[in-house]
Each structure stands twice: as structure tokens, then as C-alpha cells.
Amino acid sequence: MTSCHIAEEHIQKVAIFGGTHGNELTGVFLVKHWLENGAEIQRTGLEVKPFITNPRAVKKCTRYIDCDLNRIFDLENLGKKMSEDLPYEVRRAQEINHLFGPKDSEDSYDIIFDLHNTTSNMGCTLILEDSRNNFLIQMFHYIKTSLAPLPCYVYLIEHPSLKYATTRSIAKYPVGIEVGPQPQGVLRADILDQMRKMIKHALDFIHHFNEGKEFPPCAIEVYKIIEKVDYPRDENGEIAAIIHPNLQDQDWKPLHPGDPMFLTLDGKTIPLGGDCTVYPVFVNEAAYYEKKEAFAKTTKLTLNAKSIRCCLH
């Protein structure tokens, strides 16, 4: 018999989150649709729960009410004593943790798909938090293969000092899905179709896995975050240069030392320094102006996964 890495157990509980950011409308629209008619997301033997994560922000069509829901799922915020004085999103995070967690427990949901849009030209993107997770690498390989020839990129946010504390991190297997470009507060049919297909293929993978299909060893190309880059700023902290036209919409493309990065209003080009080629992502993302992030630098690498098969009882 072929030796293989056996994944822990079959997958039982899956959640699909929309509206973690209330103005990213593809996930909101799909989740609302699936709450009314969820036939397309159901798979035999699998509990799939669509869920609106930040209903107040969705109602106002804004990213958040008090603070970013997708950055506060750490033990400090989840452990705060519940009171009306807490920011709305912290209270909501505790409610979500109660419903789908608790985080880092045996009772937490197996998989959470968190649906997002970006204003950046990132196409279909899967966000991975753990480079050693054979199950998710296999799932992402399946999704990428199923979507081809449509490109699907994998963004690895594993980093020693950049801690995200994402909404989906309460699950055993957290999956971020990011599709763009799409303006905030807008629905685009092409973007919706791409996100819908990503979810379909992900659920198909889980179904095949649960039925005992063995997935042979595989490898995927990923883009691992190195650092986030702020806009150049003046002495008052105001933005002093904008994304250069040569960099705009060039997510995932190589940016070499000396290539144009920013452009000042008086026409001066600010190039990339250093001696390493990087791959920019979230270029000129609207939501990241407040976070002082013009783009993120990534490096390209390959992740390998062992063969996996479900432990059938």
C-alpha cells in the first residue's frame, strides 16, 4: 500500500463567511444568496454554514464600524470581559468565536472560507496562513488546477512579526479568498463568478477527501510576504508620492531593483532599492491607505505537500 500522510479526520463542519468587511460585496451577495438557497454549497455528509460576519458594517456598506474585524481574533480580544464599552467588532468577534470556535479547541469548525474583495488587480487569490499544512496545500492545488487556465495565486502570510489574527483563524483550516479588482461597494459579475467557482472547487475537494480519495504528493507556487511598504510621506505625515503608473495593476509581476515604484507630484520617480527582485501584491489597495500600506513585497517559492487521505471509520 502506498505510504501517505493521513489527515486527522474527515471534514464535518464548514463555514463560509461574507461581510467580514461590509463594503466587499461579492461575499456579502453570495452568502445572502446561499442563506436563501444553499443547494449549490451542500455536499453529502458535510455541514456547510453561510454566515454574515459583520452585519452592521454590511448594512452601512462600510469596511467596519469601530475597528477591523479581520485583525482582532487574538486571545487578548477574544478574552476581554464582555461589555457595551467594547468596540462593536470586538464584541462581534467574541460572538463569532462562540459560534464557530472556540479558537484553538477541538470544537472549532474544521474549515472557514472568508470571502473578500480587493481594489487591487490580484485576480483569484487564496490566502494561506501555514506553509506546513498538507491538507490546505492539497486543497489549493486542486482549486488552482480546477480553475486553469484562469490564474489563481496563493498568498502566504506566515511571518515572524506580522500577526494578522484573522476572522477565519478560529477554524482548524483557515482559508482566505480574495478576488479583484473590484471597487468597494460595487458588485461585478465576473468577480462574483470567479469567487463562486473557487468555493465550488473547494467544496468538491472536501467531498472527494471525505469519500476516501487519496491525493498524491503535489507542489504549489506561493508568494510569501516579506514586508509592507508605506507611501513616501512629508514631515507632516502626508502622502508625498503615489503608486507609479508602471507599478499600478502589476500585482504578482516581478519588481526589480531600480524599477519605478512611486511618483511625486513634481514628476520624480522613486525606484525600488535593494538588490532583490520582489513580487508586489495589494498594490494601491483602497482599504490600506489608513493602514499606511502602499503594497506588500513578496518572494516566490514552492511548497510541497505529502499525499493525504481521509481516515475512514
Rank of each mutant, 00 (worst) to 15 (best):
E95Y: 09
G267Q: 09
P217N: 10
E178S: 08
L147K: 00
S105C: 12
R92M: 14
K13Q: 07
H141T: 04
K297E: 03
K200A: 11
K253D: 04
A241E: 00
L255H: 04
T125I: 05
I157V: 10
R168A: 09
I137N: 00
H33R: 08
M195K: 02
P160K: 09
Q42W: 11
T264A: 07
L162T: 13
A219E: 15
K172A: 07
Y155D: 02
L126Q: 00
I11Q: 04
L46H: 03
S3K: 12
Q248V: 12
H207A: 15
A294G: 06
P151R: 06
A241N: 03
A93Y: 08
N304E: 12
G27N: 01
F282A: 07
T166E: 13
H141G: 04
E290Y: 08
I177R: 00
E178G: 14
K224I: 03
S161D: 09
H256F: 08
H33C: 09
L30G: 00
L156N: 06
N133V: 04
P245G: 04
E84H: 11
L303S: 00
K268Y: 07
I270T: 06
I143Y: 01
Q182K: 03
C4F: 10
M198S: 10
N304K: 10
P217R: 06
E285D: 11
T26H: 02
K80H: 15
H244T: 03
G237D: 07
W34F: 07
H256P: 04
R43M: 04
E76M: 08
Q94F: 14
L86T: 10
R92P: 06
Y88D: 12
Q94S: 06
A171E: 00
I137D: 01
R63M: 10
V175M: 02
E290K: 15
V278G: 01
C124L: 13
C152G: 01
A148T: 14
M195V: 07
H21C: 11
C4Q: 14
H256A: 15
F295S: 01
R71P: 10
T125N: 05
D230M: 12
T44I: 11
Q12F: 07
E211L: 10
I52T: 06
H256S: 13
K49W: 12
N284G: 14
R309F: 05
A171R: 05
D234N: 14
T264D: 08
P271L: 09
